[in-house]
Amino acid sequence: MFGTDTNELDPLARRKRDRRIFGGLIGLAMLAFFTLDYVGQPLVAVGAYWLFFVAAVAVVYTSDAIMDERDRALERHTSHTAVQLVGAGLIVLAPGLNALAEANVYDAPPILDGVVFGWGIVFVLWGVAYLYERSQQ
């Protein structure tokens, strides 16, 4: 982690160490959030949570051992599957809920409108990310 000067450990040991650091930071983020929120310091709780989370993300981005090519391939496939599921849900729900409401058959609860809106935002973000990635190749 963090450059090449700490690479005296073999890759598997580094991977184990960096995963432990990552998990520990996530655990600390949760612990700090709930503890500080419990003692009546909600803003400090959120600040501590963000701090530990940013540190955990930094570990992922700086470690050369925490993820190998199979982990990254798994992450890509998982993201692809999730986007496909959201897309299928959006195709069915977005026009379907609107049609049912206009035909006075079924009025969806507001939370479902929020879900559809959120999924729509996911697709807008996907489109922006796709255009960015395409421009880089």
Binding site: P11, L12, D68, E69, R70
Partner: peptide
């Protein structure tokens, strides 16, 4: 598997 993983810098699971 662990030896080979370390030699080519991937995880044993890979």
């Amino acid at each position: 598997q662990a030896d080979l993983a370390a030699a080519v810098d991937v995880s044993r699971q890979t």
